[in-house]
């Protein structure tokens, strides 16, 4: 039986060798191929769609509005960086669709003029203008409201199906992962901001955002993927222990590389 050592973080320089290098990794979810990208996004080649989750735009401004002393430059720099990362992803994959799996804008207070202008300019730029963007409404979107019409973002509710050309199957788009519902196949979701703390001995390599893949054919549970939070200003929730026994997969995004964690072998 695998033992469960209790570990505590000890800071130190750590070198972790990746088991699966590279900036993209092909996985299959209920038999349908999907690429995981190291910049916290997933890509379906067949439907030419990039999936990201939890942008939380305007989080820094929300904090400023709540009287926390965050420099205004931070708000702008963070938003600009996130938007340019989307541009890079789309050009790398040559995809023509973008799906945001919830939480586009952090809060109503963060929806200031600076942000509106910034995103509008981005939307009208030559790289983004032809892209079709869909937003699955998440918990934050419900309170911050649908994006302005000139962002040209189609808003849908959870459970929307995205057909996959050349296949009878389709992706099921969610914000909150429907893992406790039975029989949802090929869900794509965000919301939990999964991270994983890689340790060895008493040493921690720090928390890395990760993909949490539910590809199990054994259990009766849903199959699908939880995408890590895309925004720069997002924290994270630890992937629950015991994932490896439940035949789930965890893929870390660490410094531009994807590292798949080995599952516990049958002892």
């Amino acid at each position: 039986m695998p033992q469960t050592p209790k570990t505590r973080d000890v800071s130190s320089p750590v070198v972790v060798q990746p088991t699966t290098g590279g900036d993209r990794l092909r996985v299959e979810i209920a038999g349908t191929p999907l690429w995981l990208l190291s910049d916290k996004a997933a890509w379906c080649e067949a439907s030419s769609t990039v999936f990201i989750a939890d942008l939380h735009l305007g989080k820094a401004s929300t904090m400023r509005a709540g009287m926390l002393p965050v420099a205004p430059g931070v708000c702008r720099a963070a938003a600009e960086q996130d938007l340019s990362r989307i541009v890079r992803l789309l050009s790398q994959t040559n995809a023509s669709n973008l799906v945001i799996l919830g939480d586009l804008i952090h809060a109503r207070q963060g929806r200031d003029e600076a942000l509106l202008t910034l995103v509008r300019a981005w939307r009208d730029s030559s790289e983004i203008a032809p892209i079709e963007i869909t937003l699955v409404r998440g918990n934050h979107d419900r309170s911050s409201g649908d994006p302005p019409s000139d962002w040209r973002i189609r808003c849908v509710d959870e459970g929307e199906a995205l057909p996959i050309p050349g296949s009878s199957a389709s992706w099921s788009l969610w914000h909150v992962p429907p893992i406790n519902q039975r029989g949802v196949e090929r869900f794509l979701a965000g919301h939990v901001h999964p991270v994983f703390n890689l340790r060895r001995g008493g040493i921690s390599a720090g928390r890395s955002p990760c993909f949490h893949v539910f590809d199990s054919q054994i259990t009766q549970r849903s199959t699908g993927l939880i995408v890590p939070a895309f925004g720069s200003l997002t924290g994270g929730a630890q992937v629950p222990s015991g994932w490896s026994e439940r035949c789930e997969r965890v893929v870390l995004c660490a410094e531009g590389r994807l590292i798949e964690l080995p599952r516990a072998a049958d002892a």
Partner: peptide
């Protein structure tokens, strides 16, 4: 060359994990 992952110990060189 073992890393500690969620309670089990595995090799990092890609070979079969060892408990």
């Amino acid at each position: 060359e073992m890393i500690d992952v969620g309670g089990s110990v595995v090799r990092t060189d890609g070979s079969e994990p060892i408990i």
